[in-house]
């Protein structure tokens, strides 16, 4: 312990050994998130190994957070609580539960897709319908399927990256006049495949296209972000004749 420098920094930061006050300044700035990324990384590396500095940063951070109490209190819009509780009550809230169910659905879906020609050959007009989705401009590598059965929709995606923090994917049904209705939002997980439920509009036959766009958390009334997937709901359109 005695042979090791108190702060194991490289480059310029090594100089701080000599100037404790300067290092204290780094710690307060770090606690406030006011350091540029490289400096923050160096301080973080030190703090992770130094219990005393770790404790100091925790106290500075707690003191900084107390500034939240200087803000004049404003009532949040009443719908905020309603939105929170509505979201909590959605059955698909727990992603881990989805993981198991998702895997089973992927297996079932793949089976369905493989068996589709067989099913359609015997019962051509009966659901489920399997609509292939192609990657759009924002995600050319992505692909997927929308499976429609009895007014229920299931979307299988492949190669769709996890959206940035605060953003979600939103499904759209588009009619011949270009009017759009939301089919719900979803967030992908860091794995190659994802399976998500889609809210299918009751008047499904009027819709001719489907699209998926990147939107702010909670979804948008109309698409605002880039498109990641698209497909045609007209049986004659895609992918063949």
């Amino acid at each position: 312990m005695a042979k090791r420098p108190a702060y194991d920094f490289t480059g310029d930061l090594r100089m701080m050994n000599a100037r404790h006050e300067v290092f204290e300044e780094e710690l307060t700035a770090y606690a406030l998130g006011a350091l540029p990324p490289e400096e923050a990384a160096a301080v973080a590396a030190h703090v992770a190994r130094c219990p005393a500095c770790h404790e100091a940063v925790a106290r500075y951070r707690e003191a900084a957070t107390a500034l939240a109490y200087t803000v004049p209190l404003q009532p949040p819009p009443p719908r905020l609580k309603a939105r929170l509780m509505a979201r909590v009550r959605r059955p698909q809230r727990e992603s881990w539960r989805w993981l198991g169910m998702g895997a089973a659905l992927v297996a079932a879906t793949l089976l369905l897709i493989l068996a589709a020609p067989l099913i359609f050959a015997t019962q051509p007009s009966v659901t489920p319908r399997v609509i292939p989705l192609q990657g759009a401009e924002a995600a050319p590598e992505a692909e997927g399927y929308l499976i429609l059965e009895d007014g229920q929709g299931l979307m299988v995606t492949k190669g769709l990256v996890v959206p940035p923090e605060g953003q979600v994917y939103q499904v759209w049904f588009v009619d011949a006049a270009g009017r759009r209705v939301s089919g719900g939002t979803f967030r992908t997980h860091p794995r190659p495949y994802g399976v998500y439920t889609v809210t299918v509009p009751l008047n499904l036959p009027v819709y001719v296209r489907i699209g998926v766009t990147l939107e702010p958390e909670g979804g948008s009334p109309q698409p605002t972000g880039p498109q990641v997937l698209r497909g045609s709901l007209r049986s004659g359109d895609a992918p063949g004749p």
Binding site: E24, E25, T28, A29, R59, Y60, E62, A63, A64, A66
Partner: peptide, 16 residues
């Protein structure tokens, strides 16, 4: 840097 440090240290000490 030094103003930021002095300000946050003062706040920390005051609350502690």
């Amino acid at each position: 840097k030094s103003r930021l440090h002095l300000a946050l240290r003062k706040l920390r000490d005051w609350l502690a």
